[in-house]
Simulated assay, not measured.
Amino acid sequence: MDNIEDIILFQIDRTSKVAKLYSQKEFEKQNVPITTEQWIILKIIQEHKDISQKELADLSLRDPASITRTLDLLEKKSLIARKVTPNNRRQYRLGLTSNGESYIKEHLPRVTAQRKKSIAGLTELEQSQLLTMLRKIQKNLE
């Protein structure tokens, strides 16, 4: 039987948790008043203009109820706007407000620095290989 420490999926899960904890601590140290989860949602909305809530849930791998709560918080902070979809009043398209765009622009350097720290010591080739391997594992599990 494999030692749990030697199981790849365990190490992937552990790395994900360590990364989220680190990022959240950095956000708190730097007085960034959102969670890492909220940041991810903002970035997805920025990168996929006029996205639906379902598409956002799919891309972020989060359940619709969790997405709704996060969107409510981001809307209260005036970072996103929901626009009713023509011909379907139950569906919304999501976009960043000008405050949301400014917010990302202001905080992106901090997030970029956090990402750089996470891959310190990895060559570009190793980074590319790691991404390829992680995507293969994801595809295997779909």
Rank of each mutant, 00 (worst) to 15 (best):
I119F: 08
Q53W: 04
S66R: 11
A19L: 07
Q53Y: 03
Y103P: 08
V32R: 12
L141S: 02
S78F: 02
K43H: 08
P33F: 14
R90W: 10
N88R: 01
I44F: 14
W39S: 00
T97E: 11
M133K: 04
R90L: 07
K17W: 04
K49Q: 14
L73E: 12
K29G: 02
E75D: 14
V111Q: 07
Y22A: 02
R90V: 03
P109F: 00
T35S: 09
M133E: 10
K54E: 15
N31Q: 12
V84F: 06
E28Q: 15
P109Y: 01
L59M: 13
L73I: 10
D50S: 06
N87T: 06
E26M: 03
T36H: 08
R69K: 09
E26K: 08
Q46A: 13
Q53S: 10
D63N: 08
E55S: 15
G100K: 13
R135A: 12
S128V: 15
I67C: 02
K83R: 09
K25E: 11
D50C: 04
I67F: 11
I45S: 05
E101G: 05
R110A: 04
A57D: 00
S118Y: 07
T85W: 03
N88I: 02
T132Q: 14
R14E: 00
I12S: 01
L125Y: 14
E55D: 15
K116Q: 14
H107I: 00
A19G: 02
Q138W: 11
Q138G: 06
N87F: 14
W39R: 00
L42E: 02
L21Q: 12
E26C: 01
T132G: 05
I51E: 06
S118W: 10
K25W: 04
L141W: 10
D72G: 14
E142R: 12
V32E: 11
H107A: 00
P86W: 05
Q38M: 10
Q114C: 04
E47N: 13
Q91G: 01
D50K: 03
N31I: 01
I104R: 00
K17V: 04
N140H: 06
I41H: 07
